[in-house]
Amino acid sequence: MAVDLERILRPVDNPLKPFEAKYMTLASGENMVVRQIDRDDVPDVLRHIEPLLHVERDFYDVVAARVYAELLAYYRHRMQDEYVLVAQVDGELVAVVNGREVTPGLGMSLHTIALRRGLRVGAHAFAAKMEYHIDTLGHQEVLIVAESPIGFRRWMIEYQLEKRFDTPHELGGVPSWALTKELFDRARSTLVVGRRPVPPEMLAKAEAKILPPSDPPTPPADLLAATRSLYDPTATALIAQRTLLGGEADNA
């Protein structure tokens, strides 16, 4: 009798509680819906992520490549206990966030990628992801890393994440940082926004079709930009030195 190899290769997912969709008003006045998608929706997302593999700016290429791989692995049943949330404005895809559950008490944040910039869509989507881990899945903490200075500023600095440097993160094996429930509670009033329930018409429009981003990040005029992004244009390293790595004196 032949061995069903697919049954061996395919992880058996544990059922995760669903994320209840929510919405928020952006600075533009547009309403952004954040909702969970199923495997069947993944191909619609992948076709909008693929072009970002070629954007050598602010680490979009690295992040897009990994998001693509993670979502494809989810679609093809090669990732254990993963979930994907998307953010949409009038159906248009503006951000994707994903992660997975490691144990019933521990979450692993994977990626946040914004397809429209300048309106905090990535920050809002990340906050929704953390809310899912802490409030819905009941995780005591979530392990996080950042690939770009912008991500480091948004997550490590704004949420004042704790170090878990003895725990390698699943993204590249680099030292982890952790968002605990206590840190999340502290951030709720300033960083975590959104309203529920989503008006049925708004949600229906989001679910009807994942439309392409209208103003996605584009490749730099020349490759020097990719190098310049390493120079930390947001001053994240300096802020980190002052607020996180520099000791208690600067936090006071």
Binding site: M24, T25, L26, A27, S28, G29, E30, L119, R120, H124, T190, L191, V193, G194, R195
Partner: peptide
């Protein structure tokens, strides 16, 4: 978006 919505202070 920048003043009146519940999310304005974060935006």
């Amino acid at each position: 978006g920048i003043l009146d919505s519940p999310e304005a202070m974060t935006n």
